[in-house]
Amino acid sequence: MSFFNTNALESPSLETLWSDLRSGERYALEAIYRNFIQDLFNFGMSLHADETLVKDAIQEIFIDLWNYRSNLCSEVNIKQYLFKSLSNRIQKELGKKARRSSIHWMADHEILVDSTEEELIQSQLDSEISSKVKNALANLPIRQKEVLQYLYFEKLSYEDTSKLLDINIRSTYTLAWKAINALKKVILVLSIHFFFFTGL
């Protein structure tokens, strides 16, 4: 089947695309790429701030999709499958380079704090707060970053997140708690700083 087949022109469902990919239809691979490339790039950049590495990792997972298409499961959530594949690929590349990741958190993400702390940050509009919170995010382990991404930005359940991370639900709760607790500690320190030194 050529790229310009009737199925492609009729905008087939994701289920159909996945089935066609498993059957060796190249148009399906290209359509899946177009559907998810932006989400994958944003997700990859939220895990590691190296654009070249992220783009290479995305390319690799699509190469693998094509090379191992006959071994793919028949029923999957394509977006979650691609996210998990990209996360694994990025972590593998970071391991090869034997260096800690530099996490980039997209500027338009909401900060995961409770309403009181959120009001504090919004009311200050101070570059020091923004910088310190971003640094705190950047210093979180990549698995904590990943669990926050799935739970709060992709709106996945704890059960789905645990499956993506290949850990049990209790461990997922623990990772999320540690990440949020680390951010709250930074907010608390900033609150004390502004209380004593700015008269707030």
Rank of each mutant, 00 (worst) to 15 (best):
S123V: 06
K155G: 01
A57P: 03
I78M: 07
Y173S: 06
I37H: 15
L65D: 01
K155D: 12
V133E: 06
Q80L: 13
V54G: 00
S171I: 03
I103W: 07
L200W: 04
Y68D: 14
H48T: 10
L151R: 11
N168C: 01
E60A: 08
K184A: 00
A31K: 14
F196G: 08
S2I: 03
K92A: 06
K92D: 07
G24F: 01
E51N: 01
S131Y: 09
Y33M: 01
L125M: 14
L164Y: 04
D39V: 09
I192H: 05
G44C: 08
L14A: 01
E117M: 10
F4C: 04
L14K: 08
L188S: 11
E10R: 14
L175I: 04
A107F: 02
N135I: 09
L47S: 07
H109F: 15
D39N: 15
R22F: 08
A182T: 15
S11E: 13
L40M: 14
A136S: 14
E15Q: 11
K84H: 12
G95Q: 09
A98M: 11
E128S: 10
L137T: 00
E25D: 12
E154C: 05
T172K: 00
I142E: 04
I58V: 08
S171C: 00
K97Q: 15
V186M: 06
P12D: 03
L86W: 01
T6L: 14
S2T: 07
D20R: 14
E117F: 09
L183K: 02
E93M: 08
T116R: 14
S23C: 10
Q38L: 04
L17G: 02
F153K: 08
F153C: 09
K92R: 12
L137G: 02
E110H: 11
S191P: 03
E146Q: 13
V133H: 10
S101N: 08
E93I: 13
Q91S: 07
T174E: 10
Q122P: 00
L164Q: 12
E10L: 13
W105D: 00
I37V: 13
H193F: 12
G95S: 15
N35Q: 15
S102G: 10
I167L: 09
K84D: 12
Y152G: 09
S23D: 13
I111D: 05
K163Y: 07
L14H: 11
E25F: 09
Q80C: 13
I58Q: 06
Y150S: 01
A179V: 09
L148I: 11
K96W: 09
L47T: 00
L140Q: 08
Q59R: 10
G199H: 06
D166I: 01
N181G: 00
